[in-house]
Write a protein that binds this DNA or RNA. Structure first.
Lengths: 344, 344
DNA sequence: TACCTTGGTGCAATCGGTTGCGCAACTGGG
DNA sequence: CCCAGTTGCGCAACCGATTGCACCAAGGTA
């Protein structure tokens, strides 16, 4: 070992004061006089003093750590949320421990335990499968924030207060999509979900509802859901089914699925937008680079992450629980949706 | 607050033993008798005891924390690396604090300081801009692992031993690309880099070298580099330049850039592979879903993350430094590269 | 019976900061 | 010159776990 770690005691010694004074000088405690303060701060800088987070956390009873539990770290959607969350947290002096739940309740429970071990002062769960009520038994109920595209389960929830709920207005997004598709002559509209994600259900129901509003009553849920987890697997099987009797338009759980299906269908000679219109969800960067560029419901991913962190931190600092937020989404019309004749 | 935190003392009291015994029973210390052990473990389970990581870390002098510093959390490349790193670390009982350097030395320095505060036992820097030597002054030199596509700087490096170096064999990837392009009739081959990433230089030089080997001496570096950071910005300006006098083939810094350029060129009526061949790097999922599907040099992203974590952990546990590793890459030929006539 | 193992536990120190409280020095008014 | 009222700083306890070492009760041996 080159040289042992520099302690607060070393700084204090160099500055010729006690550890208490040194400690207070470093956090700009008003009781410390100006000359002393600067002396200590210079000593700390000279010695390259780095405080020990564990010791501080132990005594000061705060860890300045946030837990972020999301479905999957490696997909762009969650990546973007995570990046914004982390950024916001760091800017306020909080560090974040990241965990991936992979849609597995056991993994999510483990993650929550780890967060507790590290005395996380707040936890955000993004697209998780654990019920809010169970999650709350495993941590401070009011230091937990749920981020979900899904309205229903969270809306139904009536347990102890959460630190917050942040949702995206997927139902409205679906409305906009269906309105647009119908307005451009599409009658036969199908939805393809993903795994057993709760939001698939929300989407599906919203599609059916919107279609009914337009007086269209064909079944929406004609195809199996894609395997979960961004594996890119199973697209071809679904594409085969779709190719057998293509609908006018296909609304997909997310951009990834839309892109995957669009590719698989192209292999089978079915092109968007000529033969079929395809719509995704999320508005990831790649949706704007595909050929044809993908029409999608863009959700404010970065804002989601940022808001989650900010809400958590303000709850921690002020103790007041922020109201539930529903973030607006936006329909981005690009090239993957076309115009159908009045009756194809 | 519902009820205060459960302490080891509570567990000990319930099991009718001292804290020391309880502590030892929970880690299966051989000195503790079977009945005592189970009694303590049951008590801990009943009480839902969760040890305090800070206290443990303080006394036991290990934090079981790894620091992961990568260029950017929100792009799929680093997302995938991060996911694998995190997974491997957790499986060995290590948690990870993630930071993003955004190609900014100041940010990277801050991240290293935070890691030190949390007493990270190992740090991995992925695609960072800080020199190894500087990074080493800010942490235990032998607990640092560098992950870089770039060979040169790391190869040149002759400071204190690192915990490891993991590289991808980009130079070979470039060779394969050029060989393939030349074999399929391409003569006029250009490279487009990204920001001032070091690996852009490596790529560029490798392309030039490979071309010389084939007796081709045209300038490779004809276009400005794209703005860094996955913004997707600036593609159009470059595309305009390219469109003015399109080369036979374009090799791009990464898949993202390739996809972006392919899209921008398409807007200008230049189609791959008919009008131009385009090749990317990394082999992200979307490269296989574009239209045309992107030919790319696929790098083992997950393996990279996994290996980094595993090496770090084995170094921590055994103290032996693993050898530098160069991971092989693979040329994936898809639709974005075609065949040129003997002389277009 | 006295002594020595040896296995099983507990005592108390310790990790590195933070913080309640007390004390000394200095200030200024009476 | 005395005393109350600041101002600036240090003492020592404390946070919750881990761990070196001492201790005690059996069991074995002489």
């Amino acid at each position: 070992m080159p040289h042992r770690r520099v302690l607060l005691a070393d700084v204090a010694r160099m500055a010729g004061v006690s550890r208490s004074t040194a400690s207070r000088a470093l956090v700009d405690d008003p009781r410390i006089s100006e000359p002393t303060r600067t002396a200590v701060q210079h000593a700390a800088a000279d010695l390259r003093y780095v405080p020990d987070a564990a010791a501080r956390s132990l005594r000061a009873r705060h860890s300045r750590i946030l837990g972020l539990l999301l479905a999957n770290l490696s997909d762009p959607v969650h990546g973007q949320i995570a990046a914004a969350f982390k950024e916001t947290a760091w800017a306020s002096g909080y560090r974040v421990i990241i965990a991936a739940g992979m849609q597995d309740p056991a993994l999510e429970r483990t993650a929550l335990r780890i967060f507790t071990e590290h005395a996380a002062e707040g936890i955000a769960m993004v697209s998780c499968v654990l019920a809010p009520s169970e999650a709350q038994t495993r941590t401070r109920p009011d230091r937990l924030i749920m981020v979900q595209p899904d309205h229903r389960r969270v809306r139904r929830y009536r347990g102890p207060l959460l630190a917050g709920v942040i949702m995206t207005d997927d139902a409205s997004g679906v409305e906009m999509v269906v309105d647009h598709l119908v307005a451009t002559g599409h009658q036969d509209i199908a939805y393809v979900g993903s795994g057993d994600r709760a939001s698939s259900t929300v989407h599906r129901e919203a599609v059916a509802r919107a279609l009914r509003r337009h007086g269209i009553h064909r079944a929406v849920d004609r195809y199996p859901s894609a395997a979960d987890g961004w594996s890119g697997q199973g697209h071809d099987e679904i594409a085969a089914l779709i190719a057998a009797a293509p609908p006018d338009a296909l609304i997909c759980y997310d951009d990834m699925l839309a892109l995957g299906l669009m590719d698989a269908l192209r292999q089978r000679g079915i092109q968007a937008p000529q033969d079929i219109s395809i719509v995704g969800f999320d508005g990831i960067l790649f949706a704007g680079l595909s050929n044809p560029r993908l029409t999608t419901v863009s959700t404010p991913l970065s804002e989601l992450g940022q808001l989650a962190a900010a809400s958590l931190i303000s709850t921690i600092q002020s103790g007041t629980l922020p109201p539930a937020r529903v973030l607006p989404v936006e329909l981005v019309i690009r090239e993957s949706t076309g115009v159908r004749g009045p009756r194809a």
